[in-house]
């Protein structure tokens, strides 16, 4: 009985309908949260006592960095669910993640570099966060490369699932080895995120942005997963209804 929800969630037509219905429930809150976060972060929050107005980059940099990691974990978790229970829905979710994750990793790198210029005096510093973001981008690119070079969707799903799981085990190891490496070679970086002393006027907009980006990601994921599901369920009857082909023929 307790597993009914799991099986229903795993049923493609049910998931498709659910995803269609849920998308606006994530998209609109995402827009509102981001709007509130932007007003709070750009207008209401006071300038930082050290970094002046330059710190306002945090309101897009931190959510991008957060998504880059979270999307990878979602991708690997759903890949594992797909491998273990042979669940098409999980594979569709996993396949939807890669492009979103890679683009936000690139964004986190770009905004990190733009922030680094005024703070460090150079666009690129081998700062542990930037370095592990870069390695994460390579992991995403490898995943996308593997996916693109396998033509059969089912095999691409399973092979890239193995890669995603191997990658997610390695992500913390890579992150901490980079921190360890960095601590030997230079003094701790000037850039400090999420200081515990951050006043509420700065912190609340950041939390709003983080929540907004997360909701935005879920909405994107639901849209993409529907498309991926249609590609995987070529011969199922429900696709006729879902694709909007009315009984005209």
């Amino acid at each position: 009985m307790a597993w009914v929800w799991f099986h229903r969630f795993g049923s493609p037509p049910h998931f498709y309908r659910l995803a269609t219905r849920l998308t606006p429930w994530f998209a609109w809150p995402a827009a509102l949260l981001c709007l509130a976060g932007l007003i709070g972060g750009l207008v209401l929050a006071p300038p930082d006592y050290q970094q002046g107005d330059g710190f306002r980059i945090i309101y897009v940099h931190a959510p991008a960095a957060w998504l880059s990691l979270m999307v990878y974990v979602v991708m690997a978790t759903s890949a594992a669910v797909g491998l273990i229970w042979r669940m098409t829905v999980a594979y569709a979710v996993s396949a939807s993640c890669a492009v979103i994750g890679a683009s936000f990793t690139a964004l986190a790198l770009a905004t990190g570099m733009l922030w680094g210029r005024p703070m460090w005096g150079t666009y690129w510093e081998w700062d542990p966060r930037l370095t592990s973001e870069l390695l994460l981008l390579f992991l995403y690119l490898g995943y996308l490369g593997l996916r693109n070079s396998i033509d059969d969707v089912g095999r691409a799903d399973r092979a890239s699932a193995v890669l995603a799981i191997v990658g997610v085990v390695n992500v913390p190891i890579i992150h901490y080895s980079v921190i360890w490496w960095n601590s030997l070679h230079q003094a701790p970086s000037v850039m400090k995120f999420g200081r515990p002393t951050m006043p509420a006027a700065m912190l609340v907009p950041l939390l709003l942005m983080l929540a907004g980006f997360t909701a935005y990601f879920v909405a994107l994921l639901l849209i993409r997963a529907r498309g991926e599901l249609l590609r995987r369920e070529r011969n199922a009857h429900w696709t006729a209804e879902a694709a909007g082909a009315t009984a005209t023929g």
């Binding site: 979103i100 994107l220 849209i223 993409r224 529907r226 498309g227 991926e228 249609l230 590609r231 070529r234 696709t239 006729a240 879902a242 694709a243 909007g244 082909a245 023929g249």
Partner: peptide
Amino acid sequence: ALRSLHSARAAARRRIA
């Protein structure tokens, strides 16, 4: 995301037709 969904739906419609 929208384009990916629309192309999948268009492909499915063509197949059904």
